[in-house]
Simulated assay, not measured.
Amino acid sequence: MEQKDAQIAEQQNLINALNLAQSQANQNQYLISQLRPCPTPAYLTCNPWATNGTSYNGCCGAPTGCC
């Protein structure tokens, strides 16, 4: 009878360890998703300092200072 109780206790400890590991993995995934290691912009916009070949020094497109 004691051997059976010991085996049940051992299995219960194993089940608890597995449940704890899964809970920790779920918690870590939740925290990573909330902290967002890569920033997400609130809205998309063009970079005002980027040039596309037609603008000069990031201005409005005129070669003589429209900024």
Rank of each mutant, 00 (worst) to 15 (best):
A17C: 02
A21Q: 10
M1C: 09
W49K: 13
G65A: 06
P39I: 03
T40F: 00
N13H: 10
Q24N: 12
Q11S: 06
G61R: 06
T51S: 15
S33D: 15
L18M: 08
A25N: 08
G65Q: 11
L44K: 00
I32G: 01
L14W: 08
N47W: 02
A9T: 06
P48A: 08
I32Q: 13
D5I: 13
S23K: 13
Q29L: 15
P37L: 05
C67T: 08
Q34M: 10
A42F: 01
C59F: 02
Q12T: 15
L14P: 00
Q7Y: 03
N16F: 02
T45M: 07
G53Y: 02
T54H: 14
P39D: 03
I15A: 14
I8C: 02
C66I: 04
S33E: 15
N57P: 00
I32C: 02
I32R: 12
P63Y: 02
D5N: 14
K4P: 00
K4W: 06
P48Q: 07
T45S: 11
Y43W: 09
A9C: 01
Q29K: 13
M1N: 10
N13V: 06
P48I: 04
R36F: 00
L44M: 08
C38K: 13
Q3R: 13
Q27H: 07
Q3F: 01
T51D: 15
G53E: 06
C60H: 11
N57Y: 11
A9F: 01
Q7E: 15
G61A: 09
A21H: 03
C46T: 11
L14M: 10
C60L: 08
G61Y: 07
Q34V: 09
Y30H: 10
T64M: 06
L20T: 14
A50M: 07
Q24C: 04
Y43E: 04
I8K: 14
E10Q: 13
L35G: 01
A25K: 11
P48W: 07
I8F: 12
L18T: 06
A42Y: 01
Y43G: 00
N19H: 04
N26A: 12
A42T: 11
N26C: 03
G53L: 04
I15T: 12
C59K: 02
L18V: 12
L44D: 00
P39Y: 02
C67E: 11
P41K: 03
M1F: 04
Q24E: 13
N16H: 07
N16Y: 07
K4L: 14
W49D: 14
G65H: 09
C66L: 07
Y30W: 09
N57Q: 14
A62T: 05
E2R: 14
C46Q: 08
M1E: 11
C38T: 13
Y30R: 14
T40K: 03
